[in-house]
Design a protein around this nucleic acid. Structure first.
Ligand code: MN
Ligand code: MN
Ligand code: ZN
Ligand code: ZN
Lengths: 137, 137
DNA sequence: TAGTTAAATGAAACAATGTTGCAAAAATTA
DNA sequence: TAATTTTTGCAACATTGTTTCATTTAACTA
């Protein structure tokens, strides 16, 4: 989906900062941490503004939040077409390479649905695989 | 396994700090973040010392490191008996309750083994489920 | 198009989290 | 007990994340 319509759809105003963040994600199909994005943006964008943009994008479903075992979280573009309610539930796995450090979406790898433990309600799942990617073999 | 032999087994010296951390995990079967443990320990233990203890325990296989979507990581006792090499691979799922904030091990829920994407080597998997636990329903 | 309104931004101040280096203390070994 | 090695506490520092508020900017309206 085009950046501009993405913002329009979610009632977010079209600003230079937001377009810059979106075009970063559009260019590379991988996940970025706050500090990685910050570095790419240079000193153009305030640190706090970036926190707010990532929060807003995650909340409305533009970005995925990916738990990380070292950095606190990373973000990746949500490519599929689904409602915001489903944004946090029906998800795919992610892979993190311990050589290059990249985290990528495994769009094709839907997280297997295992039955909830007795008495628990599951409405969110994160599957993070770690290893070595094809590039780094 | 008893705290004392656990330390002996991994060639870690038996100190008050380490025993305190181990007894915390022994008492509650749930995961704790650094700051949660820090709070339990009061001002007895230095912040840096705790970082080092958690690192050491994780490296030698006493504790699991659990990626979190808000806090950077949490730690939980590794109950099963396996080699250090397997400590990071053959793992179970974890569940985080968004009401009480607790993260617990789902020892019975082995992470389904899905075939690695072409050209990738997977040697680590984290499955974090989110929702509401039985207590909080 | 100019004026109005609401959202977004940048900056500062602060809080929390994580790292490094080093000297003192404590645990094991001899 | 003495020697050795690990662990600890502390200080100093770096990074990450939050809050508040004044200013700017985008979208809307007349
Ligand atoms: Mn999504
Ligand atoms: Mn284990
Ligand atoms: Zn790689
Ligand atoms: Zn709960």
């Amino acid at each position: 989906m085009k950046a501009e319509e993405l913002l329009l759809k979610h009632k977010l105003r079209k600003t230079g900062n937001r377009l810059a963040v979106l075009s970063l994600f559009a260019g590379h199909s991988k996940a970025f941490s706050h500090s990685e994005i910050q570095a790419k943006m240079g000193s153009n964008m305030d640190r706090v503004t970036l926190y707010r943009i990532l929060d807003a994008f995650e909340k409305c479903g533009i970005l995925h939040k990916i738990p990380d075992d070292e950095v606190s979280v990373k973000y990746a573009l949500c490519d599929h077409d689904h409602s915001v309610e489903h944004h946090h539930s029906d998800d795919h796995a992610h892979f993190k390479c311990h050589e290059c450090g990249d985290t990528i979406c495994l769009e094709d790898y839907e997280i297997p649905s295992l039955k909830s433990p007795h008495g628990f309600r599951v409405d969110e799942k994160f599957l993070l695989l770690g290893g070595v990617c094809d590039q780094c073999q």
